Simulated assay, not measured.
Amino acid sequence: MAPGPDLALMTRLVLDGPQRAAAAAAFGMIAAGAAQALLGALGLAAFLAARPELFTAFRWTGAAALLVWACLALRAALRPAPHGGPGPMPATGDDAARAEPSGSRSPTGRAFIQGLLCTGSNPKVGMFLMAFLPQFVPPGVDPATGVVVLAACYLSLGLIWLLIWMRLVHRLARRMHSARVVRLTHALTAAVFGTFAVRLALGG
């Protein structure tokens, strides 16, 4: 729930397209978190911890994905405004949905995959869940059952927070009448992606 790549991706999607795309990305992030928790419960987290070379490869893959998104956000920030002027603010939410041609390809599937990769490419998510949740399993409760229930609660809260963030950014974006502000937001998003890519690559 802390500021990071997931919130940066959500912000970019809200600014660039309809809200349903950002919502699809949020569900992709939660699906990735659930998959990592399941794989961690099955022993993958311990396996990666015991095989540093595999963990490093996984970590570098995640860093590469974040770096690609940083480049995309930076390209959006550097894109010149139409006709050389400040231009109108990009349509967001329902405005963008109404502006889509009827035959255009839905962006929700692509956004879901982006969310899935954004969270799924970070192996530390599963390891965090496996290290954090077991300590809260009540005595006398089957550990596997307890972890599954706690993971479901944690991921549900995460989804609620992502959807709240989506609405907050959407409301703020509707009040942004300057293309310069939107470009600055893209630049900040690129900085977040780039920072986390470097940290992940270096193992921080």
Rank of each mutant, 00 (worst) to 15 (best):
P5S: 09
P5K: 07
P5D: 01
D6L: 05
A8Y: 02
L9M: 13
L9V: 10
M10P: 03
T11P: 01
R12P: 05
L15C: 09
L15W: 13
Q19T: 15
A22W: 06
A24P: 02
A25E: 01
A26E: 06
F27A: 09
F27S: 01
G28P: 04
A31Q: 04
G33E: 02
G33L: 05
G33C: 08
G33N: 00
A34W: 01
Q36T: 05
A37M: 05
A37D: 00
L38Q: 02
G40P: 02
L42A: 11
L42F: 13
G43L: 10
A46Q: 07
F47K: 04
F47V: 12
W60K: 12
W60H: 13
T61D: 01
T61N: 03
A65R: 02
L66N: 08
L66H: 04
L74V: 09
L74M: 10
R75T: 05
A81W: 02
G85R: 11
P88Y: 15
M89S: 15
A91Q: 15
T92R: 14
T92C: 15
T92D: 00
G93Y: 09
A97K: 05
R98H: 14
S102I: 07
G103W: 14
G103Y: 14
R105W: 08
S106A: 11
P107A: 06
A111M: 10
F112N: 02
I113Y: 00
Q114Y: 07
Q114R: 09
G115F: 03
S121P: 08
P123H: 07
K124H: 14
V125F: 03
V125N: 00
M127S: 03
M130W: 03
M130I: 12
A131T: 14
A131P: 02
L133V: 11
V137I: 11
P138G: 03
G140L: 10
V141D: 00
D142H: 10
T145D: 01
V147N: 05
C153F: 05
L155H: 00
L157T: 00
G158L: 02
M166C: 11
M166F: 08
M166R: 13
H170S: 06
R171D: 04
R174C: 06
R175V: 12
M176D: 10
H177D: 12
S178Y: 14
R180P: 02
R180K: 12
V182P: 03
R183H: 10
L184Y: 14
T185G: 13
A187E: 01
L188C: 11
L188G: 03
T189E: 06
T189A: 13
V192M: 09
F193W: 10
G194N: 03
L200A: 10
G203I: 13
